[in-house]
Amino acid sequence: MRPFKYQTASTVKDAVSAASNSEGSKFIAGGTNLVDLMKEDVERPAALIDVSRIDLRQVRSEGDSVVIGAMAKNTDTANHPLVRMNFPLLSQAIFAGASAQIRNMATNGGNLMQRTRCVYFYDTSMPCNKREKGSGCAAKEGLNRMHAIFGWSDGCVAVHPSDMCVALAALDAVVSVEGPGGKTRAIPFSEFHRLPGNDPSRDNTLENGDLITSISIPKNKFAGNSYYLKVRDRASYAFALVSVAAALEIAGGKVKDVRIALGGVAHKPWRAKKGRGVSERKSCDK
């Protein structure tokens, strides 16, 4: 890989200011995707700012939400009692992703930031608008069996690879971000990732220097009736052909609320909004 500068940051403020002052820098935490991409010469950061030491590892209850730290490991998050009790859907989704080794390294913030696994994105000799603006999309007429069904553009048919994010989308999570000058923002999950449109190079709505600090999930009544189903080419360690995070709130034998999100089908976790109208208020026999 290409040489790069490396520095650690111990606070969010340090990390954000380091990123703002260093052109072409990237944050690194677990590194499970970024390092791969650097080896393949897809990502060529001039500097890496290691944010894994920042104390953002807690999972805690805060008012009507559970807040999971951006630097908490995927495995620790999935196993955390607050997550298991309140959002078994999220635990299931996390465990459906990657391998045990990768989940042990990967952080929650990093999971949101992982990039598509489109084979053309990974191959620097191929056209790819996401990797190299204006070079074209080789996948659109190429090997795209696992690519987008919804929301794609002529410029990009890649999908977001995360399982965790599909559950977060279904659960209406909110992503907390701190940017330059200590400016914080709360981004609804559905607005965090974006569709490719005419700029596939941007996976999400973060601005330069923004660092994810936490993800908060409003408490809900889905815990008893939720499931993450992932269909893939083998039983483990494969990305979704399609996945579904589905949750029902049932009260008095009636469906009060429905959440459905799909994975592996679009540039972002895809909320199936229609499903709600169809299923809500239907009586249900448990």
Binding site: R117, V119, Y120, Y122, D123, S125, M126, A138, E141, G142, L143, D233, R234, A235, S236, Y237, A238, F239
Partner: peptide, 28 residues
């Protein structure tokens, strides 16, 4: 599971890593 897929436009094998070239895992 197994297939080395080729993009014939470029004459190139594309599924050239263990994430895209699937071999059975223990769970299979």
């Amino acid at each position: 599971h197994e297939a080395t897929e080729i993009d014939h436009r470029y004459g190139k094998m594309m599924t050239t890593n263990l994430a895209d070239y699937h071999v059975p895992v223990s769970a299979d």
